[in-house]
Every structure is written in structure tokens, then in C-alpha cells.
């Protein structure tokens, strides 16, 4: 009996506040705009068959007619992909350096990587406005060094979004890669060198393949949230920056079109399912390899 209560409480909570809301989104995405004001007709009260008949894919069809949505999905994928690659380029050398650092430094370096994660996400994104704006610190610095003569426009472009994503999600990339590299036995590198590898080829042939799982985990951990990102494109991106999270937010708050917003959400989720399943599989494989 007590065991039942133990399971039932969190279970019911998640059913009521996670699954049910989600089904509502799904249902509204199939409703008509005029009706989609509470209590969203067709309602269950009208009977199940009426419910089914009243629902249609109109909103989804609408999404295909306006190329704004289609472009937003593509551009979200593109931005997430590019920023994930950039994050890997920045994160891998850092994780590698941390794994090779003397043992007594590593705890401190770890803490330094995690610390930003505990500080406000919003503030970390905000910090870049002052750096990237036309009269910001970066332009001041570049003008001062004489590298450029007129300020660069970075803020409100996709470049700023890339920088923002790399900056805020860097810890997610570093930690799994570091964990993989940390477990790496030094003698493997020594064995590779002993067998005739140069330093660099030992790195490519031994270190990189053995940290593969860390790289994959890190990439997914960046890619998945980046795809639905809202804050970064809204603050750092420009009017030309299309990201699906931003479109959803605006569709909902500015246009008040709930069915379309819901349809956008459903499609975003469908797009996310593939990387999430791949990520889960990678984690499972790794867990099995560990045991």
C-alpha cells in the first residue's frame, strides 16, 4: 500500500502536469482557430466522434503554405548544427587540456567549467550584448589595435547567435568529453608511440576514437537544446534570424494564434525525436560498455 502511494504521487503529478498538457497541445494543434479559445471546441463533451470529426490538419497545412515556418525549421537546424560544431571545436581542446593537466589542478578546472552553469543563463547571454554591439568592447578593442577601421556589425546577426550558443552550452560539451578522456589510460598513448606513431597520429588513432562516446554525448547535449532555443536568438539575433523557438513564442504572444503555435510545437518535437532517440541509444551503449 505504501509502495503504491510512493509510486502514485510522482506518477500522477507527471501525468497531470506533463503528459496531459502535452496532449492538449496536440489536440489544439488540430483545432480550428476560431474555436480554439477555451474551452477549445470540439470538446470531449460533444462526444468522441464529433471530437474526431472536428479535428483536422488545417494548421499543419497552413504551416506548409507559409514559407516562414519551413524556413524557420531549416534555419534552426542549420544554426544548431553550425553552433554544435563550433562548440566541439572550442570544447575538445579545453577538455583535452583539462585531462592532461596535473591531478591537483583538475578539481579546480572542473569547478571553473561548472561555475558558469550555476549563474543565470539570461545574464550570460546579456553579457554579450555589451561586447558585440557596434560600440561594444570587441569593436573598441579591434579599432584600438588597428585591425579594422570601421566597426563590425556582429550583434543582431547569426554570428552573434553562434557565439551565444557556443558560450552558454560550452560546459555541456566539455564535461562528457573530459569524462571520456579522463578515463583514458596513458599507457595506450605510450603503446601507440612505442609502436611507431607520432604524437599527432597517436592522438588521431587512439585518443579521438576512444573519446568518441564523449564527443557524441556532448554534441547531442548542445544540439538538442540549441534547436529549440529562444533567449539567444531573441537577444543576440536580428530580425533575419529565424529560429523555431522564437517563431513559436511570437506566434503565441504576438499573433495569439494558439492552434498554429501548437502545430509549430508538435513539429518541433517531431524533429527533436530523432536526435533524442540517437542520444539515448548512445548513452545506453556507453552504460553497457561500462558494466
Amino acid at each position: 500500500m505504501r509502495r503504491f502511494a510512493l509510486i502514485a504521487l510522482p506518477y500522477t503529478w507527471l501525468l497531470a502536469l506533463f503528459l496531459v498538457p502535452f496532449l492538449i497541445v496536440f489536440k489544439i494543434s488540430l483545432s480550428d482557430i476560431a474555436l480554439a479559445i477555451p474551452p477549445y471546441t470540439p470538446t470531449i463533451k460533444d462526444g468522441f466522434s464529433a471530437l474526431i470529426r472536428g479535428l483536422d490538419f488545417e494548421n499543419f497545412i497552413f504551416l506548409t503554405t507559409d514559407d516562414l515556418y519551413y524556413k524557420a525549421y531549416i534555419s534552426s537546424l542549420q544554426i544548431a548544427l553550425i553552433s554544435t560544431s563550433l562548440t566541439l571545436l572550442v570544447g575538445y581542446p579545453m577538455a583535452y587540456g583539462m585531462a592532461r593537466a596535473p591531478a591537483e589542478w583538475r578539481a579546480t578546472l572542473m569547478m571553473l567549467v561548472i561555475l558558469p552553469f550555476w549563474t543565470s543563463f539570461l545574464i550570460r547571454v546579456y553579457a554579450w550584448i555589451g561586447i558585440l554591439s557596434n560600440e561594444g568592447f570587441l569593436n573598441q578593442f579591434l579599432l584600438w589595435t588597428g585591425l579594422i577601421s570601421t566597426p563590425l556589425t556582429i550583434l543582431n546577426t547569426n554570428t552573434a547567435v553562434y557565439i551565444g550558443i557556443v558560450y552558454t552550452y560550452l560546459p555541456f560539451m566539455i564535461l562528457p568529453i573530459y569524462a571520456a578522456l579522463d578515463r583514458l589510460d596513458d599507457s595506450l598513448i605510450e603503446a601507440a608511440e612505442d609502436l611507431g606513431c607520432s604524437r599527432l597520429s597517436a592522438f588521431w588513432l587512439v585518443t579521438v576514437p576512444l573519446s568518441k562516446n564523449g564527443i557524441i554525448a556532448g554534441c547531442f547535449l548542445v544540439f538538442i537544446p540549441a534547436l529549440g532555443e529562444f533567449v539567444i536568438p531573441s537577444l543576440l539575433g536580428g530580425s533575419g534570424t529565424l529560429m523555431i523557438g522564437k517563431v513559436l513564442f511570437e506566434e503565441f504572444f504576438n499573433n495569439r494564434d494558439w492552434p498554429v503555435a501548437s502545430a509549430v510545437a508538435v513539429i518541433l518535437l517531431l524533429i527533436l525525436i530523432v536526435p533524442i532517440v540517437l542520444f539515448q541509444r548512445n548513452q545506453q551503449k556507453q552504460a553497457e560498455a561500462d558494466t
Binding site: I224, P225, F230, G245, L248, S262, L268, L272
Partner: peptide, 10 residues
């Protein structure tokens, strides 16, 4: 892994 916009909306 759910995007916050979806959690919030739902």
C-alpha cells in the same frame, strides 16, 4: 530535453 517553449506553452 524538452524545449522550454513547448513545456511553457503546454
Amino acid at each position: 530535453v524538452m524545449p522550454e517553449v513547448i513545456t511553457g506553452l503546454s
